[in-house]
Nucleic acid binder design. Structure first.
Lengths: 188, 188
DNA sequence: TATTGTTATACTCTATAACTATA
DNA sequence: TATAGTTATAGAGTATAACAATA
């Protein structure tokens, strides 16, 4: 056997998950600050910069959050002078998000840390390793996206075991029927 | 050339980061609910269950959060009847965290989703692939942990570019000198 | 004094629900 | 009616700072 580690002990999903979390944690920290603060804003800004300008709807898909969450993020970035929103004149319901003209958005405050940070995290991997990792991760993503839900429904957490759930595969903003205004279901 | 994808285009750090985030997202959702809600509690509970009982200090190291954050988490789990905290009689400053006796903690509400969820996420990978992935991730973690900080200091985000920073490698709870009580530095 | 943990406060991110404007 | 987005409200997670108890 010349394959390295061919008869090594098997790796559990939990071990992988742990490793994953640790790397994620580094990504988050590096991506912006200590931990997760502003992380989402940085991500949005990174995408907008890459695209130059992008419809809010498309942004919604890329980020995979609710429109209300995106609204808030964009509001902050706009107030900070980093992006601008202009109405799409073809379909006046939508907006086009772009980097703020001239100074602020394009160069100034938020550096391209989403790119630089990402590079620095994976800097220790060679080209082949990157391809390997990308291949494995792609497989995971594809598989997970294909699965309709994959896990049955018995994930109830917390006493009372309510948990309604209505996520993953959204139909017009999730649309969980039941539950009182402004609340998720049952918390703590 | 017989190596698969040997002359494929190189993979950027950003691409890897994106893949990473997507998988993380699935892990989070599966790990508990829709997104990240209760995720941290589930993680704590998972660790406590695995160990049977564990000192709060050790838990702190494993989770890599501030003691105040852990305090809050443990408070919620304790109020939910999932864990108990007992004083360490040898050193009465510390607590020992354990699964709540009998019903609640050990079996009842929070299933072992940290384990089941993790397995389900990585189910599509064979043994060799798991080892491969684990190897790559371990390399990343080790490298990132070795680096003293790795990124210089010029990550200022937001206008004003304050950002003090005093994280990563904590000396008695971060100890960021400067900054007003209860505030981080400058927000939005 | 140093260590261990708690409490008060603040802030990001995300969600649901209800709403407005446009198609 | 359906789609695109906003606003109000709520709650999780995490942080800093100040404090209490123990060593």
């Amino acid at each position: 056997m010349s394959l390295p580690g061919a008869d090594a002990p098997p790796v559990s999903g939990q071990e992988l998950a742990l490793l994953f979390r640790r790397v994620s944690r580094f990504m988050s920290r590096i991506s912006h600050r200590c931990d997760h603060a502003h992380h989402a804003q940085a991500r949005v800004l990174g995408i907008v910069r890459e695209r130059g300008s992008i419809s809010q709807a498309e942004l919604l898909d890329l980020l995979d959050v609710r429109s209300s969450s995106l609204s808030e993020l964009l509001g902050k970035l706009e107030r900070a002078g980093l992006i601008t929103r202009t109405r799409n004149e073809q379909d006046r319901r939508g907006f086009l998000v772009s980097v703020a003209g001239g100074e602020a958005g394009a160069v100034a405050p938020g550096p391209d840390m989403d790119r630089e940070g990402a590079e620095s995290v994976f800097a220790c991997l060679g080209e082949d390793e990157r391809r390997q990792l990308a291949g494995l991760l792609s497989r995971l993503v594809e598989t997970l996206e294909r699965e309709p839900s994959g896990l049955g429904d018995g994930l109830g957490f917390g006493p009372g075991g309510g948990l309604r759930r209505g996520c993953m595969g959204r139909g017009r903003e999730c649309a969980a029927r039941g539950g009182r205004p402004g609340r998720r279901s049952r918390t703590e």
